[in-house]
Structures are given as structure tokens and as C-alpha cells.
Nucleic acid binder design. Structure first.
Lengths: 241, 241
DNA sequence: TTTCTATTGTATAAAAAATATACATTAAAT
DNA sequence: ATTTAATGTATATTTTTTATACAATAGAAA
């Protein structure tokens, strides 16, 4: 399942903050590692010697969560000298679950390698919680979406990473929404507004949101959408090519 | 002068984009390496195993330029798989100058190490070109300030790093100006405006700049400054404690 | 002392952007 | 045809940004 650890760059890791949106709720994807006591970590992993870091982030996300073809954005490097996995590794000594490597193959060199200091490059993504169906089973036995306010205490600085990633997501939403591939091909203005309201955790006035969104100049209006509801049908929009 | 290379983290480097401001001009600090043909590189170096990356950036900057106690801001990671020093190293084979290591000590293992793929964490700073006096001689024989439009072609992606750093600097100027320690303890509004105009490369209306700057709420007004000029004396300001 | 000049502080007007409010439109059920 | 709920759009209000005007003043010159 895994490459031998010699192919990875030492002391370097990538962690992914995956925001999931669906139906006016925003959550974070957190794999839970089952040890003596439960341990939560962001989906993370290591960079191969011959791999772009952006590519590595995509691969890692796929390996740990099954999510593929996700648009990831680099947001911050976390590089304190004392940034170490040691606590996590200790817990794994008394566990039958895999972490980054197959536990059967976890020999002394690998353990040493893992216990060193790691500099982590943080990536974030925003995906549709329901549309994104893992194409392969994630290696982690348990993985779940957590609302921000229910986020478990994760290892190391992972909770801080989420906080920082959310700041950046909010700043970049206007310019990155298209890239996130969050909305369907065509969508109503209401759907866009719900995304914004959820991510910013605040309400916007409908009429003003509409004109602000259109003033960005990235949407084009299509035909109307007749849903069968007994009220005026909304227009559909899509991102300009 | 240098630590043995074994103390550095493999495949990881830091590059610094140092913006220098003085008297309405903005420049970039670029060490020139003297080989058969000239080579320019941003001041860069490597991270020790037991060192915070922020600390490493400060140390590297000091080693390569003599600049100490500079406020550095991380702005981007550059991590293409083909990001290699090889061209630079080749040039150094026919040169008597040091690069990252003392050339006398450049044995085969070090050369191999240096020729690998490097992921670089970009930092930038904004300093007063004239106030900042190197406390120690930089190791590079030649180092100079270049205006953006005169920037030489540097190695690898260093020119792109400057472009990206300038984007981030402009975005962050409002909130980071204090940290840059660019202005003297007390200063006039005109001095602030000159900094802004230079960095953004555009003029601002004086009266509007004044009210915008004050509306940030970070300045406090002190006494007037009598310079001997035959016109109304400006107030002095300083950053609120 | 008075006048003049260059620069600064500040007020105000004009324009633009953001926000609030109102109202007409309409798809489908009744 | 009437009603209802959501939508499109117009307009008013407020706030922010930008432009313009003008008074204040430190020192030089008259």
C-alpha cells in the first residue's frame, strides 16, 4: 500500500484541512486513529523526492481520505523546532492500526524517522460533502466530518492549522470559489448565497448579495429553473468560461 | 564559518526577498556570486534540525547579508519537483568563491547534497536601506540593491519569488508596517505617505491619505516638528503602544 | 512689522460603494 | 381568478472613498 519510507523527503510533511460544505453546514474532515485512546489528526503525509508539493498534497489526500481530483490551496508552513509526532507514535505502539505506514513494516528505522521533527506545509480545500464520494477506501478505519465547534482536540498544532485555514478560506472565497468546484455546473443565486453565509458564518441581504455577486463579473445567467414550487422561478447561473 | 552540512534538513531551503526602502525608492537586496559568469541569487540557506523555521530565516539572512534583527514574514513555499541548484553548482566548480559552504570543504557528499531537489520556503522583509547597517560582513563578495526594473536574472525561480513577495507585501502593508520597523520612532504623515506611494508605485491624495491612515487607529499624534522650513510645521506621529 | 511662499491641517463636496427597504413579478396551488 | 412564497429589480439610505477648496502657519523676504 505504501511506498518504502526511503522515498520520502525527511522532516517534511503535508497536512490538509478539508472543509466540507453541504446544505448550509461547514465541516472539517478528520480521520480518527484508533489506539488505546482515540487520536485525531488532519489527513497528512509525506512528499516523495520526485514529486511537486502540490501533487504530493493531492496524493496524500487521496490516500488518507479517498478524495480525488480536489483543488487544494497552500496556505501556511508550520515549522517550530519542537514540532514532533512523538506522542502519536507512542500511542501507536499499543495499537493494531496503521498510521502513515503499514504497522507490520514499522521497523526501528521507520519509527526513528517518524519521531523526528517535521515541518508541515498546510493545504486546504473546500468540497461538497455529499458530492465527493471517495473512489477508494481511506486507509483510516474511521473518518468523519466535524463541525468547527465540535472539532476534537487533534495532535500537535492541527487545531491551529484549521483556524488559520479558515481565515485564509474566507479571504480567498471570492477569487477561489470557481476553483473549489463546490457548486454544480449550473446553480441559483440562492445556492451561492448559502455557501457564502455558511463559510462566513453571517447573513447577507439577498438583494445586495445578488448585485455584489454579479458585479464580480464571473457569472453568466442562463435559463430559468422550474422546480415545481409555487413561486417565481429563479434563474440559473454558471461560471463564465 | 558554517556548520557541517549534516546539521541541516535535507531538501529544504529558505530564500529571503529583502525589500529596501529609502527616500522614495524601493529595491531588492541581491547578492552576486562571482563565478566564470556572474550569478545572482536571493539570500538563502538551510534549516538546522533543531531550529524554528522563522529563526532559521533570520539566521540565514544575517549570514548572507549581515542584516540582523529583521522582521521576516513567510509568504509562500516553492516546491516543484525539478527545483534544483544544479546549474549554480556547475558554475561553482570553476570558481574560487564560497556559496552555501566553504569551498575548501566542498567534498563529494556535500556536492551531492546540494545538487538534490530543494523545497524553498519564501520569506520577505521590508527594511530601511540606509538605517540597516550590516553588523558583520556578508559572506558574499558582492551584494547590492537593485530596483525592481533592474533586477538581474536570478537562479531558479528567484525572480518569480520577488514578484510574489511584492504582491503579498502590498496586501499586508497596512497591517505589517509597524512590524517592519521601517520608520523612525516618530515620523510625519508625509513620510508614511512616501512609503506607501513607493511600495504601491502610485500616488495618493494627501488629504485623503491622512484621514485613511488615521482611521486605521494605530497612530498617535505628538508635538509638532519644526524643521526650519518656512511653512507650517507638520505633526509628528508614532505607532500606539 | 507686514507680506509672501510653501506646506500642512482640516473641512466640505462629489462620487462610488455598500447596505437597507420597498415593490413588482411569477410559478403553481387553491 | 386568487393566493402564497420566493424571486428580480428598483430605489432610498448610509457609509466609504475620492476630489476639491481653503484656512493655518513657519520662516524668509520686503
Amino acid at each position: 500500500m505504501f511506498e518504502p519510507f526511503e522515498n520520502y523527503l525527511d522532516h517534511l510533511s503535508i497536512d490538509c484541512v478539508i472543509f466540507g460544505y453541504h446544505n448550509r453546514t461547514l465541516k472539517i474532515l478528520v480521520p480518527q486513529l484508533k489506539t488505546e485512546s482515540d487520536i485525531w489528526t488532519l489527513p497528512g503525509g509525506f512528499i516523495k523526492e520526485d514529486e511537486d508539493i502540490d501533487q504530493a498534497a493531492k496524493r496524500i489526500l487521496a490516500e488518507r481520505t479517498g478524495l480525488e481530483d480536489i483543488y487544494l490551496e497552500q496556505f501556511r508552513v508550520f515549522g517550530k523546532a519542537n514540532r514532533k509526532n512523538s506522542m502519536v507514535l507512542d500511542a501507536f505502539e499499543n495499537s493494531e492500526q496503521d498510521l502513515y505506514f503499514d504497522k507490520q513494516l514499522m521497523d526501528e528505522p521507520i519509527r526513528n524517522w517518524l519521531s523526528g521533527r517535521f515541518i508541515s506545509i498546510g493545504y486546504y480545500a473546500l468540497v461538497d460533502m455529499d458530492k465527493v464520494v471517495p473512489k477508494r477506501m481511506p486507509i483510516d478505519k474511521k473518518i468523519a466530518w466535524y463541525a468547527l465547534e465540535d472539532l476534537p482536540r487533534m495532535i500537535m498544532d492541527h487545531n491551529q492549522q484549521v483556524t488559520k485555514a479558515l481565515d485564509v478560506l474566507r479571504e480567498q472565497l471570492d477569487s477561489k470559489l470557481l476553483g473549489f468546484n463546490l457548486l454544480p455546473d449550473t446553480f441559483t443565486m440562492k445556492e451561492v448565497q448559502e455557501v457564502y453565509e455558511t463559510i462566513h458564518d453571517q447573513k447577507f441581504t439577498r438583494s445586495n448579495f445578488q448585485s455584489k455577486m454579479l458585479s464580480l463579473g464571473v457569472l453568466e445567467r442562463l435559463e430559468k429553473k422550474y422546480t415545481g414550487a409555487s413561486n417565481r422561478a429563479p434563474y440559473l447561473y454558471r461560471f463564465k468560461k
